[in-house]
């Protein structure tokens, strides 16, 4: 069973992301939630996480900083990280992809907007 970590300071956003992922075929996965990057790293130290869906703008640590920390840690660098952001430009998207983000998805997300990024993962 895949372990999916959703990181967002908004409980509403976490709930909505989870619903979208379930709708597009990740129902039955083990979902974990974190309110910020620090909490996310703690959860990653205690659990073998397969996928991370993280907001970009969060208090304490941005999604970009979290991504960098994940990719810099050999024990975590294989985790697929998706950035979900309400504030993404094409330039920022390229930058995030270049430092290891699997995809950058603009808010508001929907099952339709998230599905293309998830298709490969469901098959794996």
């Amino acid at each position: 069973m895949k372990k999916i970590l959703i990181v967002d300071d908004s409980a509403t956003a976490r709930s909505f992301i989870k619903r979208c992922l379930e709708i597009v075929g990740l129902r039955g996965c083990d979902f974990l939630e974190a309110e910020n990057g620090l909490q996310a790293l703690e959860l990653m130290n205690k659990n073998l996480i397969d996928l991370v869906f993280t907001d970009y703008f969060m208090p304490q640590m941005t999604g970009e900083e979290l991504l960098k920390k994940i990719k810099a840690d050999p024990g975590k660098s294989n985790i697929k990280v998706f950035i979900i952001s309400s504030a993404g430009s094409v330039t920022k998207e390229k930058e995030l992809l270049s430092i290891g983000a699997k995809a950058v998805i603009n808010k508001p997300i929907s099952p339709a907007s998230i599905a293309p990024f998830i298709r490969g993962i469901i098959i794996e």
């Binding site: 908004s10 703008f57 309400s86 504030a87 603009n106």
Partner: peptide
């Protein structure tokens, strides 16, 4: 809050050039 966050993000994406970064608060 989340609704406004999304509205503001979308609004800024709409008014700025595609390659223009922007930051919004919480």
């Amino acid at each position: 809050s989340e609704m406004l966050n999304i509205i503001a993000g979308q609004f800024m994406r709409t008014i700025l050039p595609l390659d223009q970064d922007f930051t919004i608060g919480l």
